[in-house]
């Protein structure tokens, strides 16, 4: 087993528990273990875009100190929002030693962060360190006949400095699905924002976004939509309007699952470990119909 420090974040301990559970089970099949970071705290959630707000980087830096205490250099995140915020903050403090000096001085109860922690997203680990061919060799339930639409949203791709793939034409998820035997369904809306936190303040905006995103996937015959973010998942599930459901011809809409769940399913992980019971639209019927048990 190869161990890697892992940052869960709040949603993976709550609404998105299935995201984590499936990841652990899938990685075990691949010989990897997610070692949860001791005493982790909030990632900061949204990266501050102002030039004078060092305070907003304290939370991410505290997490990097935890990694440093382990004598480790890498930290892997599953939630795309955590990944983005942590990764951007790691670059923000690396760019300018004065910023880091002030943050360290502010946190005088902590040892100084020396810099150098590299934040990764699990998709990068799967693609670059484990390798898709290695994964293909371990597939027990090939997903032949399953049509899967990846939904990237914002946080895996933008800004470019932290993007895990081309911001306009990513393929990291498409390739993974194909190595698992599935067919990737392309859509021009796969890199467009789902409405994000505006779902709280201006829910109609999120509804409009989701109608386009899910509608496009439905028209292209997707059986499932796959994400890497609990907030995208929430929006895509909750704001699927009756008209998109009708377009698909399925009364219950298109299920939205996490990439770790699709991976775990293909690797033959036991049903109890897939976490599908947390999904608002049950993906099990379509999986059973297309792929079988």
């Amino acid at each position: 087993m190869t161990r890697i420090p892992y940052f869960p974040g709040c949603a993976l301990k709550d609404q998105a528990a299935g995201f984590e559970r499936a990841a652990r089970a899938a990685l075990e099949k691949l010989g990897w273990e997610l070692a949860e970071l001791p005493r982790w705290n909030c990632c900061g959630t949204v990266y501050s875009l102002s030039s004078d707000d060092l305070m907003r980087h304290v939370a991410p830096v505290r997490n990097f100190i935890r990694v440093q205490e382990l004598g480790e250099e890498k930290l892997v995140a599953l939630c795309a929002m955590c990944y983005n915020t942590l990764r951007r903050s790691s670059l923000f403090v690396a760019e300018d030693p004065e910023r880091l000096r002030r943050i360290n001085a502010f946190m005088d109860e902590e040892p100084d962060y020396e810099g150098g922690v590299e934040v990764l997203h699990l998709l990068q680990l799967l693609r670059d360190e484990i390798g898709y061919e290695e994964i293909e060799a371990k597939v027990e339930r090939p997903l032949y006949g399953l049509r899967v639409a990846p939904y990237y949203g914002c946080m895996l791709l933008r800004p470019r400095e932290v993007g895990i793939d081309d911001p306009d034409r990513p393929e990291v998820m498409e390739l993974l699905f194909e190595y698992l035997g599935a067919e990737a369904v392309d859509s021009p809306h796969k890199v467009e924002c789902c409405g994000a936190y505006q779902t709280v303040s201006n829910p109609w905006i999120a509804r409009e976004r989701v109608r386009e995103i899910v509608g496009a996937a439905a028209r292209r015959g997707a059986d499932l939509i796959v994400t890497s973010c609990p907030l995208c998942t929430y929006n895509l599930e909750q704001h699927q309007l009756p008209n998109t459901r009708e377009e698909k011809g399925a009364r219950n809409g298109i299920p939205v699952i996490y990439f770790t769940q699709l991976l775990a399913f293909a690797l033959g992980v036991q049903d109890e470990e897939l976490g599908f019971e947390g999904a608002a639209i049950d993906p099990r019927p379509v999986l059973a119909q297309r792929v079988g048990g």
């Binding site: 974040g9 709040c10 949603a11 709550d14 609404q15 998105a16 909030c42 959630t45 949204v46 939630c79 929002m81 994000a196 936190y197 505006q198 779902t199 709280v200 303040s201 609990p230 907030l231 929430y234």
Partner: peptide, 8 residues
């Protein structure tokens, strides 16, 4: 999710 509330 909490990330929506904290984000907003």
């Amino acid at each position: 999710p909490q990330i929506a509330l904290v984000g907003a």
